[in-house]
């Protein structure tokens, strides 16, 4: 397969990646792909196709059985366990189930991700405030996650994912638990983030959402890459 992102503009590259699990067998086979800086890419395919495995390989929760995964110039072959945390600080990760700390306020949930990196205390509050404004939750800072709607909770998760100015935002079915209106809102937010220069890699089942947009689409089936629309026209333009 030809690669549209040779050179310094690539933030994620899979080269002939194979992933096998001891119990369930082959999850991915011979996957090669590249995602450029500022690109918006949908990852689609049926349940169990291997979408989440691809995302897990990106944020190094899993290691490839064969082949190489390169994220932000860090190769899976050279990645040591103690480097994983540093790599993740270059990424923003959003999940379907939000993964917020239920006993902490919205501000604390977002600020927590900054504390983890050892950010100076004085810098945390203004940055959190700015991010909450960016995701449209400026007035919800002192709320607990359970006091928010699903869409709002996902916005908090997105704000948390953005605290470290990531190169790529990885979103695993971020709209899977949301109604149509909230889905639209979260997707628009992701497009805005992408327009500001952050690459977005979003796994989704929502084919309507994929069809409505003009973003690059990569389809996975039975662990193999079966379709790649190539570099989309939406790269960084916010359309």
């Amino acid at each position: 397969m030809s690669n549209p992102h040779d050179g310094g503009g690539t933030v994620i590259r899979f080269t002939r990646v194979r992933k096998e699990y001891a119990r369930t067998g082959v999850a991915l086979d011979d996957i090669s792909l590249a995602i450029g800086k500022g690109e918006f890419v949908f990852l689609t395919g049926p349940s169990g196709a291997g979408k989440s495995t691809i995302l897990k390989l990106v944020f190094a929760e899993e290691r490839p059985t064969a082949g190489e995964v390169k994220v932000a110039s860090v190769s899976s072959a050279a990645l040591r366990a103690r480097d994983v945390a540093r790599l993740r600080r270059k990424l923003g990760i959003v999940f379907q189930d939000f993964r917020l700390l239920e006993d902490r306020t919205v501000e604390a949930n977002v600020g927590f991700a900054l504390e983890v990196t050892g950010a100076p205390r004085a810098s945390i509050a203004p940055r959190v405030s700015r991010l909450l404004t960016q995701v449209g939750l400026a007035s919800k800072g002192s709320s607990l996650p359970r006091e928010l709607s699903g869409g709002e909770q996902q916005r908090v998760a997105i704000a948390r994912a953005l605290v470290n100015d990531p190169l790529v935002l990885i979103a695993d079915e971020p709209t899977g638990n949301l109604d149509e209106r909230a889905t639209r809102g979260v997707f628009e937010l992701l497009r805005d983030i992408n327009a500001a220069g952050t690459a977005v890699m979003m796994a989704t089942h929502d084919l309507d959402l994929v069809k409505r947009s003009d973003c690059r689409t990569i389809e996975i089936n039975h662990g193999r890459l079966v379709y790649d629309s190539g570099e989309g026209p939406s790269r960084g333009d916010g359309q």
């Binding site: 103690r82 945390a85 790599l87 993740r88 600080r89 990760i93 993964r99 917020l100 991700a113 470290n164």
Partner: peptide, 9 residues
């Protein structure tokens, strides 16, 4: 969650 946001062990 701490691991996801890049916390070291």
């Amino acid at each position: 969650i701490m691991r996801v946001v890049g916390a070291t062990d």
